[in-house]
Design a protein around this nucleic acid. Sequence first.
RNA 1: GGGGGGUUUCCCGAGCGGUCAAAGGGGUCAGACUGUAAAUCUGAUGGCUAUGCCUUCGCAGGUUCGAAUCCUGCACCCCCCA
Length: 427
Amino acid sequence: MNFDIFADLRWRGLIHQSTDDAFLPGWLMSGRRTLYAGFDPTADSLHVGHLVAMMVLRRFQKAGHRPIALVGGATGMIGDPSGKSEERNLLSREALLANVQSMQGQMRRFLDFDSSENAAIMVNNFDWMENYSYLDFLRDVGKCFPINVMLAKDSVKNRLERDSGISYTEFSYMLLQAYDFVYLNEHFGCELQTGGSDQWGNITAGIDLARRLRGVQLYGMTNPLLTKSDGTKMGKTESGAVWLSRERTSPFKFYQYWINVEDADVGKCLRYFTELSRDQIEALDAAVKTDPAKRESQRRLAEELTRLVHGDDGLRRAQQATEVLFGREISGLSDAELGEIFSDVPSKDLPRSRLEAGIGIIDALVEAGLASSKGEARRTVEQGGAYLNNQRVAGIDAKLTPAELASETVLVLRSGRKKYALLRFQA
RNA sequence: GGGGGGUUUCCCGAGCGGUCAAAGGGGUCAGACUGUAAAUCUGAUGGCUAUGCCUUCGCAGGUUCGAAUCCUGCACCCCCCA
């Protein structure tokens, strides 16, 4: 417990606000503490936005503390108004249950639930809220919440200023989260709650409730929200969020996302998301300055994170796919290998007889969906933007025949820098 | 209620009887350069069975050998005066 976790987090830029900057460092070094962070099951997978909170829990565990990962089966039924501009749709019970389960599965990658010393704990607040009667809850918990205090919280205030307003349901959200903290304190001795900076209001609500209800002092700490140097949200691509589940975001895409992080953001990402030491990170920062083209930082970041989220195997495949995609000619591979590398890529099945008869490159591009008209396909080829198995197509008269197959049945077409499509020729 | 202006290809915006698939800019796409980056430069940007054909300039009619361009009606938008 002689590791100063608070100082480490501060150096990493992970502390946005805490209830007591002066007290917490010593408190954390003087004994094993139990802390928690909550995750609402709004989807069947965690995404990059959850990564900061997840890594914070992981760091605490590695520093010897005991983390509790709370999945909000109950709070997820209500909807957290924090940081949201509009009322959300309620999810069905079945959807929530499924989401809780798959999110819990992903958390096992970040936390150690089997350690003898300080095993992490997984809880679902549905378990203690399900049978808590409305009347009892209002009498026990509601009584401790002055409306004027609730109205002053940013999450509520922002919504009241909008036309859409806020429903009583979402307005009540903070009571549930506040009670979670009290419950975890009573049952697991949890004394610290962490979360994104938008959670501050909910965290302090829990601290207040604990004081009023039980006369105990709890603590809170928030992490900055993850933004890029241009002010936009990190973890978003044109096609949506970057997810941790391989079904939603393949290991290859996940790896690529980090490889493509801007120079201006990569240092922050290394601090937030990796467990590299301060020396290592500062050496990488220096490398970004002296030799940006090498992108050592991005490579290291992508490697560390892909390994953590998708394992050694996922990392290997992502790297292999990267090599193939950004390498030279694609040939002599098997259908299975290609299918794996190009798992995200759209494909189209065509009868093999057509290939045997020879398909014009123009038709092939249109069939594969890489061009919306023949005119566009022709233009692409004439400008040198069309590739067959990663080799530039020479002219619009090019014909595809079985000799061009990259594997048993597949041809790899590409338009421009990175738009790929597969054509499959089954018998 | 009266007067005036507008509606153009993804967007903005020129065109005001033939040489208009329609200037220019933006966006987008591709190429060069590069770090799978940014910036920059270059090219492309309605469709097709393609030295030609078809569809497109608010909608519907009309004049003309020929209309995005002229006329009539309709719809919508904007401005000014009441």
